[in-house]
Amino acid sequence: MVKLRGTGLSAVNYPTGMNLGGDPSQALIHATTSGSFVVSLSATDLGQGLRTVIGQIAAEALGVGMDDVVIDTADTDTGPHDMGTFASRATHRVGNAVIAAAQEAREALLDVAEDELEAARSDLEFDGQGNILVRGAPDRSMKIADIAAAAQFKYGRTIAGRGVYMKPRSPVDPETGAMDPDSTEAHACTVAEVAVDTDTGEVTVLSIRSAYEVGRQINPALVKGQIVGGAWMGMSHALYETTQPYYPDPAYSPKDFSEYLMPGAYEMPKIECVVLEYPSSNGPYGVKGVGEMTANSPIPAIVNAIYHATGVRIDELPVTPELILRGLDARARAARLAETSTTPDS
C-alpha cells in the first residue's frame, strides 16, 4: 500500500445578496416601557445564528446592551416583510434595515431626552450601556428605560423606528448579460492537503487551511462556525455526496442516511483559518455574506490536491475511490504503452 500526498490550492469570490437585487427586508423597532427594545422581523434562523447577530447589530445601533434587545422574528402577524434567508443575504439586508430602524428610534428617544434632561440635542450622547448622557455633565444622565417610560406615561409619545433595505432590482440585458448581480463580494483562498491510498483509492483529507475576507465580523465565533462547518460540507461534496451515484442513470438513489454518504467526525481533518476584515461599502458595519461560500473553496482545493498526489485529473464530483483507481490504472497503462512504444523492434 502506498499513500501519496498532495496539496491543492483554490481561490473564490462569492456575491452577497439575492442575484440582481430586488430583495427587500424590513425591520420595526419599538421600546417597551421597561426600556427594552423589540425588534420585529421576518427573517429565519437556519442555525447560522441570525437572531444573535441581528441582536448585536440592533444593540450596537440603539446604544443599549444585548439584554435590552428582544428579537421577535418570523411571525407574519407581527414581523414586516422579508424576502427570506438565502443567498447570503440575511445579515446584510436585515442588518441594514435594523440600523435604519434603530436610527429612527434613537431620534425619538432624543426628542424625549431633550425635554427630560433639559439639554440641547447636540449635547446628548448614548453611552452604549443603556444611558443617555449630557456631554460634559456627568451627573446629568438618564437611563433609556426611564426615558421610554416617560415617553409613554408623561408625554404620550412612541419610541419606535422603521427600517427597510433594498438593493433595487437590476435588469439583465438578454444579449450581452450586462447586469448588476451583487451588493458586494467576499473572498476565500483554501489550501487542502490529502493522502491517497493507491490500493483502495481512498482519500484522506489531512488539512483544510483557509483565509477568508468577510467585510466585518459581527460575531467572530459564528463566522468561524460557518468556516469549519462549510469546510466539512465542501469536503463532503468533493468526496462523498450524491443522490444519484450513477447519474445520469436515476437508479440506486439513496433513501436515507444509511445510504447517503457523508464524512463523519472520524474523517474530519485539521481545519484552520484566518479571517480578514475589509469592510464593504454597503453592508451593516461593513458586513459581507459568508454563509454559503465556505463550502465552495474546499472542493477544488481537495480535487487539485488529489491530482498533485496521484497525477490523476478528475473533472467530476464526487471523486469516488472508483474514479481514482480507474485513473491510476489508466496512468499505469499509458506509462506501459509509452515504454513499449519506445522499445526498439526486436
Binding site: 469570490n13 448579460g177 447586469m179 473572498h187 489550501v191 484566518v274
Partner: peptide
C-alpha cells in the same frame, strides 16, 4: 467584470497573501 459591472470591494489578492502566510508558503 464580463457582466459589465466594475469590481469593487476586491480583496482576492490580500486573501491569497493571508492564506500563503497561514500555510507557510
Amino acid at each position: 467584470k464580463p457582466h459589465r459591472k466594475l469590481v469593487e470591494d476586491a480583496t482576492l489578492i490580500e486573501t491569497m497573501q493571508a492564506a500563503a502566510g497561514l500555510v507557510g508558503h
